[in-house]
């Protein structure tokens, strides 16, 4: 029995260490990655002394065009990351604020139903914690955000990536990826059609059973309070047109979301850009295309200027 236990421990220890090592080299290609989320994270440190830092999910990177703010001499950067919710916001902002020489005057934080979805902050699909300048381990993230159920899959993904990196990282070329994104904005000229609806609507069906995450909501409230009071940064919340998104959520979720949004808007400035736009301003069920982004960003510029006056 003792022999067996000793051998098994040794066997699994070697296996565990080897797998852990593989999982740690999953991000060695981050400087060469062409993924727009990783490019966005990587480039954020180049944008310092900002007037506005936009933080949000994919609605943010497809809906806010920083270049439009150049015309009013506002320095901005769009730090939109797919599926971002309160946990992603915390990781991204903490790193950005630690890196920047001069903190931004304002942080504009996107709020949408998906922000407080249980499906938000998808560390499995978008393991951004591994691609930050000071990356976090999967174990730390699982512990910090109680993502224990997803941990095995997140680890497995890291191991796979680490293994493939051994063979592929030397073959990747360092290209000028800054051209891929324009200050974090991800341009799409696609126009929403019934064919796009047909081919993508199944992806949205899980939202029907989705629950509003109170834990994430409270996490964001606490975090924003910290940013606002301790770090003394102006926090502005905003939303964007999301086309048919709300039709996919159940009524309970939407009423909880509206309730939560109400609480947030009492504590912080809230700019609502959510207006009904025709399909031609969207690229799919819920994301703005370039025309839609121009309208939304120009509206935001107008509101900011009017408040300034």
């Amino acid at each position: 029995m003792n022999t067996l236990i000793k051998r098994l421990l040794l066997f699994f220890l070697i296996a565990f260490l080897f797998l852990l090592l593989l999982s740690r080299i999953d991000n060695i290609d981050k400087k060469l990655s062409q993924d727009n989320n990783i490019v966005s994270i990587k480039n954020k440190s180049k944008f310092d002394s900002l007037d506005i830092l936009f933080v949000g999910n994919s609605y943010c990177y497809s809906g806010i065009i920083p270049e439009i703010f150049d015309s009013i001499n506002y320095k901005t950067y769009n730090l939109g990351i797919s599926t971002a919710g309160p946990y992603f916001y915390e990781l991204l902002l903490d790193e950005y604020l630690a890196q920047c020489q001069q903190k931004p005057k304002s942080i504009y934080l996107l709020i949408s139903p998906t922000t407080f979805s249980c499906l938000a902050d998808n560390f499995l699909a978008y393991p951004i914690h591994r691609y930050l300048e000071n990356s976090f381990t999967n174990e730390y993230i699982a512990y910090k955000y109680k993502e224990y159920n997803e941990y095995d899959e997140i680890l497995q993904k890291s191991i796979r990536k680490g293994f493939s990196n051994i063979f592929t990282v030397g073959m990747k070329k360092n290209e000028n990826f800054e051209t891929l994104l324009s200050k974090g904005y991800c341009k799409s000229t696609q126009v929403y059609t019934s064919n796009i609806l047909k081919s993508t609507q199944a992806l949205y069906y899980p939202l029907r059973k989705d629950n509003f995450s109170e834990i994430k909501f409270k996490h964001l409230l606490n975090y924003l309070e910290n940013l606002n009071k301790i770090r003394n940064i102006e926090i502005v919340l905003f939303d964007l047109p999301t086309n048919e998104l709300k039709n996919y959520y159940n009524s309970n979720f939407i009423s909880n979301y509206n309730f939560g949004k109400n609480i947030l808007s009492k504590k912080y400035k809230f700019i609502s850009l959510d207006s009904s736009l025709p399909n031609s301003f969207f690229q799919n069920i819920d994301h703005l295309n370039y025309s839609g982004a121009q309208i939304a960003t120009n509206n935001l510029v107008r509101i900011i200027l009017s408040k300034k006056e």
């Binding site: 066997f11 070697i14 296996a15 080897f18 797998l19 497995q156 191991i159 796979r160 293994f163």
Partner: peptide, 16 residues
Amino acid sequence: RWLIYYIFILTIILVS
């Protein structure tokens, strides 16, 4: 022997 088991374990993780 262990190497063979490790290859199978790694295959399970990588190709599942």
